[in-house]
Amino acid sequence: MRMLAVFEKGERIRHIGHLDIQRSVQRGLRRSGLPVAYSNGFNPHILITFASALSTGACGTREIMDVTMAEEVSEEEFLDRMNRAMPKDMQLSEARAVDQKHPALMASLRAAEYDLLIRDPETAEKLTAAIPSMMAKETVTAMRKTKTALKECDIKPLIYELKGEGQHILATLVLTEREACKPGMLIEALGKEAGIDEEIRMLVTRTGLLGMDSEGRLIPLERL
C-alpha cells in the first residue's frame, strides 16, 4: 500500500532546499518506526516520492509525500506517529491510504495555488489594481530562467486564477511536469503592468497542489 500525506513546510524552514526536505522526511519516517518499504540494492533507501519540489525560500501548507509501506498501517496511526517524529515546522495534516496502482502524483499534477504576501502594503495595492488590465491582455510576457539563460515566454495561458486581497495576491498557476508559471514570473509581469520598477519583496506560500478530475475541474491532488 501507499500513503499519501499532506505536510507543511513552515516559515522558519522556508530556506531549506528540496533535497534537504526530502532527507528530513526520510529521517522522520525512520524515527517514527512506521513499516516503510526500502529499495533493494547496495544503498537501500525509503521508497518515497514528492508531488512537486517546492523552491528554496517558499513555504508550503499542503505539500504532498507518497510513501510506499511494507505493511498495512491505518491513516490515523501514520499521522499520529509521523507527527510525533517530525519537527514542528514539518507537521502532517492529512493522510490517505491508496493501493499500489494509484497513479503517480507527479504525473497527475496540473496546477498549484499560491498565497503571495507582498511585504510592502502600497506595492500590494498597486499590484492588485493592475490585475484586471493584465488579465485583459492577449499575451503576458515574463522572463523564464533556464539553466543557461533568460527566456521570454507567454504566461497568460498559465494563469487559472488571479486576485488581490489586502496585502496578498492569490493565484492559481499551471504546474505540470512540463510547464510551470512560477510566482516570481507572475509578480514580475504584474509589477511591470503596475509600473513598479524596484524589486518586489514577498513571502511565497504554496497553499495547494491540484489535479484535474474527469469533468475537467481542478481539485486537490491528494483527493484525486
Binding site: 513552515g10 522558519r12 530556506h15 531549506i16 532546499g17 534537504d20 524515527r31 519537527p87 515546522d89 513571502l203
Partner: peptide
C-alpha cells in the same frame, strides 16, 4: 531577520528549528 535571510548565502545555516 527575514530580509537578511532572503539575501544571504546558505540561509539554513542561520534559521534553526532542527529536530
Amino acid at each position: 531577520i527575514e530580509k537578511i535571510l532572503e539575501k544571504v548565502q546558505k540561509a539554513p545555516r542561520y534559521t534553526g528549528g532542527e529536530m
